[in-house]
Nucleic acid binder design. Sequence first.
DNA 1: TTGCTCCTCACGTCACGTGAGGTGGC
DNA 2: TTGCTCCTCACGTCACGTGAGGTGGC
Lengths: 132, 132
Amino acid sequence: MEDSMDDVVTIGEMCETFQVTARTLRFYEQKELIWPIRQGSRRLYDRKARARLQLILRGKRFGFSLEDIRQLLDMYERDGSNQAQLKQTYAVAIDRLRQMEAQRAELDVAITELKQELAEGEAMIADFRAAE
Amino acid sequence: MEDSMDDVVTIGEMCETFQVTARTLRFYEQKELIWPIRQGSRRLYDRKARARLQLILRGKRFGFSLEDIRQLLDMYERDGSNQAQLKQTYAVAIDRLRQMEAQRAELDVAITELKQELAEGEAMIADFRAAE
DNA sequence: TTGCTCCTCACGTCACGTGAGGTGGC
DNA sequence: TTGCTCCTCACGTCACGTGAGGTGGC
């Protein structure tokens, strides 16, 4: 019946399930992004810590900095349903989306460019072969 | 009639034309990627330096590290037409292309995901408005 | 003398990686 | 005693950013 005692995992298990290193988890803790329970010096991660890590990793995929993520998480930790904050978050996310789309456009250009270079390289290698 | 004396530009002009900072140019020099001419303590960039910077920036767009770029440039500085080296470079470039394509795929997933989040955020904001 | 461009240290930043050296319980 | 997992410093990495303090020529 005890509540936060059950269902905790070690740092090693966290690394396994989320595919991160222990260093990363300790670093996020130092940056105040997650607060595992301590059992002596050992860290134990409960449901809440795991949920936060999930959100952190999602934020990273969106290209947010850890500091951005910390602020977003803390905002929703306080009051998840404040209209002003929701709008603010929405605006920030829209901005990030634009950046990601710009990044994708640049990446597309670079990929096309590199393919062109590769085609030229292939031609040169073929010339070598023909000259043998 | 003097050869390497004409057609050099200052660091400020380099920054203008290539849209980089002076710190970046000095950093690349420290990493032995470019060797501008010295006139006292001032740096002057000739055609060769400018060509190398162009290639460096292109390499960066392809996602190569500065160390990778330095090696590629030095290879072609020595003998640009060695078949073994050309093949080696080709293999490295193919590898990079695969990484870039994987990166684009991840970016596409993230963009789709973020758009989904935004749609949910919009719905919540609309609910707020309806409740007023 | 004032402005402007350029210079050289050298510490700071971001997100961790990588040892070094030590602990605790099976 | 040996292994294994975990721990805490603390320096290293990558590609620069950012002052601080100084120089040279119009």
